[in-house]
Amino acid sequence: MSGLSFDLIALQLFTGLALGAIYVLFAIGLSLIFGMLTVVNFAHGAFYMVGAYVGLFLLSLGGNFWLCLVAVPLIVGTSGLIVERFLIRPLYGRGIDYPLLLTFGLSYVMVELIRIAFGKSGYPFDTPEILQGAVNIGVGYFPLYRLFVIGIAAVVLLGLWLFLERTSFGLIIRAGARDPQIVRVLGVNVSRVWLFVFGIGSGIAGLAGLLAAPLQGVIPEMGATILAEAFVVTVVGGMGSIGGAVIAGLLVGVVVSMTSLFAPEMAKVSIFALMAIVLLIRPQGFFGRAGLMS
């Protein structure tokens, strides 16, 4: 066991946090959209994938990574606005399965369009030059880029938190997630709020896809994998809970990374095992409200 030193485990923990940071960014949008719109957004993975491809495309035009960090969420977020406004909105009030099926189909369309435009095989995605290399974090050398991913996720979360807690629009979102009808009779145009929430969620998913690209490369199917994992995150954290998505996202990242250290062949199964355990003990997840789906 000499190979498995404390430092190695600590490093692997950080690797897990970086992976978890991507899950968190992905899952908060999924959770926010479900909490407000009661839409189970199966296209969320496709927005993530598109984020990575938009980044790739901008870089090929001569843009740099910093530009991508701003442009990708804006572009993907805007396409989210269009999808909500023209495809999902007509389905409100018809039950949870309509938007679910629509976004499911949409995700296939988006993946196919990307395959047509960029080809079926994947691309590598270079880590931006100044983020290459490793830094000593006390327990050993850790890739700088992964540290950067954790940092960006922290900044996005902090921004989102301030927005939700400190602004009027955030207050509307928090109240609307609990009781859209009361918000409506207090004068709020709820469909505008839903539009905006879908846009934000998609934009952050796009950003997550961009951040993941240097770690895993870019392929048209990348969204499907993370979607399945992110459903675990939202179920464990509690559907509709942002705080739950954050904690569960980090937890899932750490669990995956730890099992890949000790039992690599179990890494993918481990998160579903985690989900099963949590569901047995607490069916609504860490922070979920019981009966939300009924």
């Binding site: 009027s168 207050l171 509307i172 928090r174 109240a175 609990r178 009781d179 009808q181 009361i182 918000v183 207090l186 004068g187 709020v188």
Partner: peptide, 19 residues
């Protein structure tokens, strides 16, 4: 229909968000 998770002040602010 008092909104869960909000304080009294936040509920009152909610009455003003659209005003």
């Amino acid at each position: 229909r008092i909104v869960q998770g909000l304080t009294v002040r936040e509920n009152l602010r909610l009455g003003l968000v659209a005003s």
